[in-house]
């Protein structure tokens, strides 16, 4: 267990450090008075004055050169002080809270859907001979060739604009989630169905699988006792790899569908150069990424008795 948590804890600290450093550079790269901008982010655009800016300057040692400033910047970050948005003047934490819920909803629906597509498709490819498998390969390759936002765009053109079945973008009703989740799910499933297929073939042709049948177990029982876990393990492990794709997909899909999640927030903040929100959103994404990775590790650990024995 320690083997799982220590590296991840280290990664968590890396995320905070990395995001903090990059946004610090971003802050310094902008023209104008940095203390004024930070004061604005803390106390709100309306309450900011040159006095407040001076206070910040003193507190963060902004007049003492880059290195000292940098460390007080990181200190603020470690204390969880993320400031306020330069645009809307809301506290960043509050903005993030809203966004996180939306993103998690979209991500879990998309992931769930992708399983629903990938697992049957993969098993189909593994069991129904070459022709079926080749068809699935063509399908997967075609979807994979399209970036997730192109898939989303095509869905919008077809289902929203041409047929007018579903809303183009936005948030509110259950219909709104269909297209973004589906686009993301298709992109994820285009890759993961191959992983399911390869894992299934590996299990079905493994000597232990045949031996289980020779022992007298029926086909169904053999699949349940010996197939399912051997397929699940690589698929879950692959999920860890796919997390990168999923988070990147969320950034793109949320922006395309104006889904008010973290990805949309991050892209918007970058466009508006709203530094506190950029920092907060990037940080939250990084944390989410590390936490989800840890979850994947834990599930693998649960599934694989060999790993448990070693611990």
């Amino acid at each position: 267990m320690k083997k799982i948590f220590f590296p991840r804890l280290f990664q968590l600290l890396s995320v905070i450090w990395g995001v903090g450093t990059l946004t610090f550079i971003l802050m310094r790269a902008l023209p104008g008075d940095m203390a004024y901008r930070i004061a604005a982010s803390r106390y709100g655009q309306d309450n900011v004055s040159s006095d407040a800016a001076d206070l910040v300057r003193q507190e963060l040692n902004l007049d003492q050169g880059a290195v000292v400033t940098y460390f007080s910047w990181l200190k603020e970050l470690l204390q969880g002080n993320l400031g306020r948005s330069l645009v809307s003047d809301e506290p960043v934490w509050q903005i993030l809270q809203h966004m996180l819920g939306h993103s998690l909803l979209l991500a879990s629906v998309a992931l769930f859907l992708s399983f629903f597509i990938a697992i049957p498709l993969g098993l189909l490819g593994a069991t129904f001979g070459k022709k079926v498998d080749q068809g699935i390969v063509v399908f997967s390759t075609t979807i994979r060739a399209m970036p997730v936002f192109v898939v989303g765009l095509i869905f919008i053109l077809v289902f929203s604009i041409h047929w007018n079945w579903l809303p183009v973008a936005g948030f509110g009703s259950p219909e709104h989630i269909v297209l973004p989740a589906l686009s993301l799910a298709f992109t994820l499933a285009a890759i993961s169905n191959r992983v399911v297929r390869n894992a299934a073939i590996k299990a079905f042709y493994a000597p232990f699988y045949r031996f289980a049948q020779i022992k007298g177990l029926s086909s169904g029982r053999t699949f349940l006792r010996h197939g399912s876990r051997h397929i699940a393990l690589p698929v879950v492990a692959f999920l860890g790899i796919q997390l990168v794709g999923m988070i990147e997909g969320i950034v793109m899909i949320e922006s395309l569908f104006s889904w008010p999640g973290i990805g949309h927030g991050l892209a918007h903040a970058i466009f508006a150069r709203d530094i506190p929100v950029i920092q907060g959103a990037a940080l939250l994404m990084g944390i989410l990424f590390v936490v989800l990775n840890t979850l994947v590790d834990l599930v693998c650990y649960r599934l694989d008795p060999r790993a448990r024995r070693q611990a």
């Binding site: 990664q11 995320v15 990395g18 995001v19 988070i247 991050l266 994404m285």
Partner: peptide
């Protein structure tokens, strides 16, 4: 590896 690639590039 702690940050998704796209987020790094975005920053």
């Amino acid at each position: 590896l702690a940050l998704p690639g796209l987020v790094i590039v975005l920053l």
